[in-house]
């Protein structure tokens, strides 16, 4: 048998190269099932709530016009037929046109996606760059008053509802103090063909309040995770041994403790990114942020079924991608995973 260390490089390599496709295929098959089920739910749900035509078409229009419109949208056929047609077209890559905007639903969503992704990334970035240092502090000095304050803050962040915090932020910083805008995205700049806010000062000002609002819950989560991880790591022998080697406390905390607690933190940040995007619906509605979340709320209001289905498809795909990325990063961070996967 080859000595185990010969396998270090190999195992990481093989794991990434060979186990990923299997894994991707399995995930994909699961997600296709989820999608079929969800699209069916949307079809039945929209059908049960009402007729899109009633909302979309001018009630003053004459009967012939209305019937032509219904036929054009494919809504004259029985529900099961509509669903089969949808499935057939979906397999060919066509998710249909938005009833309201009359452009492909996917295109509509993709146009709104950068705004949501930017908001979600900004919020996650805030949660990470504030949450990890604060959590470390609270973990290293749990009995100091800043440590206690941080924990109290994180309890508030957990328990206050997002929409309420959003309204309070608007009242304080936009209405009372007038420091920050609370409405819309502001001017955008093109970066590699994608419109972004963060490159202009005015854009950043528009981003601050909604990103803070969206970040609050994740920030609390990361603070608690980091604090718990730090407190646990500090009790471990490897920390005592690191100190016994005469390392500075900066190195003990910054390398020995942090590298260990990064494993669960990165996993949770990654897995939660999907839910940040999903939660953006509330924040986008409050701050009139022109992203996918606001689009989906508007689409539900007018029963714009193709957009709702396409939104779900995009969200599910994002979740798959995120999970995949998390798995890869996880195996890079934790050497023990690489080996056990190579063996197993």
């Amino acid at each position: 048998m080859a000595p185990p260390y010969m396998g270090i490089l190999h195992s990481a390599f093989w794991t990434l190269i060979f186990s990923m496709p299997v894994f991707i295929v399995r995930r994909l098959m699961q997600s296709v099932l989820v999608l079929c089920f969800m699209s069916l739910l949307v079809f039945v749900g929209v059908y049960a709530i009402g007729n899109p035509v009633d909302i979309l078409i001018n009630p003053q229009a004459d009967q012939a016009d209305i019937e032509r419109a219904i036929a054009a949208l494919g809504l004259d056929k029985p529900l099961w037929q509509q669903y089969l047609i949808f499935l057939k077209q979906a397999l060919a890559g066509d998710l249909g046109k938005s009833f309201a905007y009359n452009i492909p639903a996917i295109q509509l969503i993709l146009e709104r996606m950068p705004a949501t992704l930017e908001l979600a990334l900004a919020a996650t970035g805030m949660a990470v760059f504030l949450g990890i240092p604060l959590g470390l502090w609270a973990g290293l000095k749990p009995d100091s008053w800043p440590g206690k304050l941080i924990m109290t803050g994180s309890i508030l962040g957990f328990s206050l509802p997002t929409f309420w915090v959003g309204l309070m932020l608007i009242m304080l910083f936009a209405v009372e103090l007038g420091w920050l805008p609370s409405n819309g995205r502001g001017p955008t700049t093109e970066l590699l063909g994608i419109p972004v806010s963060f490159l202009s000062w005015e854009g950043v000002r528009h981003l601050i309040l909604p990103a803070t609002n969206l970040a609050l819950f994740k920030l609390s989560l990361i603070i608690r995770l980091t604090r718990a991880g730090t407190r646990e790591a500090l009790l471990q022998d490897y920390v005592k041994f690191a100190r016994a080697k005469g390392l500075s406390s900066t190195r003990v905390v910054g390398v020995h403790v942090l590298k260990n607690i990064m494993i669960p933190i990165v996993t949770v940040i990654g897995l939660e990114f999907g839910s940040v995007i999903a939660f953006a619906i509330v924040t986008e509605s409050i701050f009139a942020w022109p992203g996918m979340g606001k689009l989906i709320i508007d689409s539900i209001n007018v029963l714009d079924r193709p957009v709702i289905v396409a939104y779900l498809l995009i969200i599910v795909s994002l979740f798959i991608l995120i999970n995949l990325a998390v798995d890869i990063v996880y195996s890079l961070l934790d050497p023990r995973v690489r080996i056990s996967e190579a063996k197993g």
């Binding site: 471990q236 022998d237 041994f241 100190r243 016994a244 080697k245 190195r251 590298k259 961070l333 050497p335």
Partner: peptide, 29 residues
């Protein structure tokens, strides 16, 4: 610490940091 007095602990499974390579843990010392 670690220079004029060194200490070794009981459980070798716990004293080395699991996520750092042995060379890292030696060089830093």
């Amino acid at each position: 610490r670690g220079n004029r007095i060194a200490m070794i602990f009981q459980d070798p499974m716990m004293t080395l940091n699991p996520v750092l390579r042995v060379d890292t843990q030696m060089i830093e010392a």
